[in-house]
Design a protein around this nucleic acid. Structure first.
Lengths: 254, 254
DNA sequence: CGTAAACTTGACAAATATCAAAACTGGTGG
DNA sequence: CCACCAGTTTTGATATTTGTCAAGTTTACG
């Protein structure tokens, strides 16, 4: 039994039923997206689906990294904790995002399922071999890493320089964008905040009280409308974008 | 003439004299570090050294990315600017660090020489071809990108959760560490802050006044000693590390 | 020297955190 | 079906940190 399994009692491994890659919702975006049929076959050999319930730890800091994985469904958080308990989330993993670091035995942060999460896991060592032999995998992984790096740098601007209001608006806007991409939020289905106020505060470098206040401010101003604590609709997209502090061009249009 | 040259009047291109890779101070750490003699030869074909004076822009946001490069000598900053002028530095590039993004025509931030900088530039398009054909280059670049990502995430913790004092102490500690690696600071040579107070404040998400106050606090406490505004010595390494807010293990020992 | 840039220092303001309490929500079992 | 409970969220009062503004001071360099 792996460390990962010990730490995650609710994790269910689904070794025998390996869903077909051809029907995978992230087939065209994940680390496998450049692969041809033959290469997919090789990946299929070392893959297994695992699901985690909301709140379950997926990987703990310093854990033996026996698997790397792609997020197929759901949202996972990636965070760092200081000795005195201060927490900073350093990534929000959504479908097609990659977990783990090839050629490293451990990772330096905690990964936790925020919602129910389905992962497509690859055994690390065989995956590293593929990385060395299948350029389509390593090329795509490089691209994913560079995209993550760009995203991390945008987040650094947010954490270092944006006001509480701008942070909240940026976060909500990001939820809107990513849920469009995932094809959820079919037209007028309400959008979802996959995180609690506390988790949002850890993502934005704020306290949960400030998150609550700013979210309610946007509600009172008629920018957002909430159907319950998690689900909302954007009433005034332009105002939301204006509040984010990001460049005026681009955001609203695409 | 490239955009880069227009924007950087003081840049000096040194197309004819291509220093030997075998004598390069970053030969064993940069993007070329895994290459054998034959592969180095290929890189040598498309490389050229360029130097920039302190303060010169190297690449401007949105610029046509005709080159990617490795930092050979000196320090460059990588930063993002908001419409109203707020600045957040998102990276500090030191020897062996990589500049640019293959398969992208532009980058999303400004790169500026903080000290005099020497770059080993590779024409982007030929470099991309090497990336596709020489695994030793793409493997190393992936590793560099993942290291950058780890560093960016550490910085996110700093920006989101650390106090002004912790930010300053972390920054100073980082200067100590990186200057040891570069083999500068030969034993009891004083260490150097390669940035002004203002630049440090943009790196740490503070104001220059707060940087000045915290630096002077560490001086008054006898943790640091300054020989001039840029050069300093660490008197009490343990106190410095304790002030950084990082885990007690590791830091001091290695 | 003289001047501009970099840095320091002080007084005050503003944003956000902290602490405390109340209100809400979703789920559970009677 | 309802009441209750724990966890989450909201709201309010206050404290703290850091930012802002405004002089000064030092330093590097011509």
């Amino acid at each position: 039994m792996t460390l990962m399994q010990i730490k995650s009692p609710n994790m269910s491994v689904d070794l025998l039923s390996r869903p077909k890659c051809s029907e995978c919702p992230i087939r065209h975006r994940a680390v496998c997206s450049r692969c041809d049929a033959d290469e997919i076959e090789q990946l299929e050999q070392i893959k297994s689906y695992k699901t985690f319930a909301a709140g379950d730890p997926i990987l703990w800091r310093g854990d033996d990294l026996t698997y790397v994985a792609s997020v197929v469904k759901g949202v996972a958080t990636l965070s760092k904790t200081m000795e005195d308990g201060r927490i900073q989330m350093v990534g929000l993993l959504m479908p097609s995002d990659f977990i783990g670091r090839p050629n490293r035995k451990t990772i330096e942060f905690d990964v936790v399922a925020a919602t129910e999460v389905t992962l497509c896991c690859f055994q690390r060592v065989p995956f590293e071999r593929l990385l060395a032999t299948v350029p389509h995998v390593s090329q795509r992984l490089l691209e994913i890493a560079l995209d993550e790096l760009d995203a991390a740098r945008d987040w650094m601007l947010l954490l270092g320089r944006k006001t509480a209001r701008e942070k909240i608006a940026t976060f909500v806007e990001m939820m809107v964008r990513r849920q469009h991409v995932d094809g959820l939020g079919l037209d007028h289905e309400p959008l979802v905040l996959p995180l609690t106020r506390d988790e949002i505060s850890n993502y934005l470098g704020l306290t949960l009280e400030t998150v609550s206040r700013q979210l309610n401010a946007l509600k009172k101003e008629g920018v957002l409308q909430f159907v319950d604590r998690r689900r909302f609709e954007v009433i005034d997209m332009a105002a939301l974008h204006a509040a984010s502090g990001d460049d005026s061009d681009g955001g609203v249009l695409c």
